[in-house]
Simulated assay, not measured.
Amino acid sequence: MKSPELPSAGRADVRIVAASPEAARQVAEALRCRFAATEQRSYPVDDSGGTRLHLTIDTTHTPEPAQPWLVSSRSSGDARTQTDEI
């Protein structure tokens, strides 16, 4: 069996296989939230109703780490009591 062709430097090819097109789309969307990516290409998986989805992501820009909502929603340091917080 021939080895697959490697993507260019700074790129990663991602293959997602899921039972439904919606599940594959959700995984691709999660990757796009963290990395720049090409448009996805989807293909049916035989007669099972499954989907195989391909996309290429850019790995040259390291994404910022995801922060929990509590950390990202902290105030700017202004500790003054607001009128509705009494």
Rank of each mutant, 00 (worst) to 15 (best):
R11A: 11
T83Y: 14
S20A: 03
I86Q: 09
D58E: 01
G10V: 04
S3Y: 11
A12C: 14
A24W: 03
H61T: 01
F35C: 15
L6N: 15
T51H: 05
R34L: 01
P44E: 04
Q82G: 11
A19L: 07
C33N: 15
R41K: 04
R25Q: 13
T83M: 11
A18M: 03
R80G: 10
T81V: 10
S20K: 01
K2C: 13
I86V: 14
L6T: 15
P65A: 14
E85K: 05
P7W: 08
A24Q: 05
S75K: 08
K2Q: 11
S73A: 13
P7T: 09
V27L: 11
S42I: 09
P68G: 07
A23S: 11
R52V: 02
A28I: 07
G77I: 10
L53E: 12
S8N: 08
S72D: 14
S73T: 13
T38F: 05
L53D: 09
S8G: 10
W69G: 13
H61V: 06
T51N: 07
P44F: 04
E85Y: 08
R15E: 01
A79V: 10
S76K: 04
V27T: 12
V45A: 05
W69M: 15
F35V: 13
Q40W: 06
V17Y: 02
R74V: 09
A30Q: 14
D58R: 03
H61W: 03
T60Q: 06
P21C: 15
F35I: 13
R15H: 01
D46T: 09
E64N: 10
T56L: 02
P63H: 04
R41E: 13
T81P: 05
S48K: 05
Q67D: 13
D58P: 00
E39F: 07
D58V: 05
L31T: 02
D46R: 10
E39G: 00
V45T: 07
T83C: 09
G77C: 09
S73V: 01
G49C: 10
S8H: 03
S20M: 00
Q82K: 14
S48W: 00
D58Q: 03
T62K: 12
S72E: 12
H61N: 05
S42E: 13
L55V: 01
P44Q: 00
G50S: 11
S72R: 07
P4A: 12
S3T: 10
R25T: 14
T62R: 12
I16W: 01
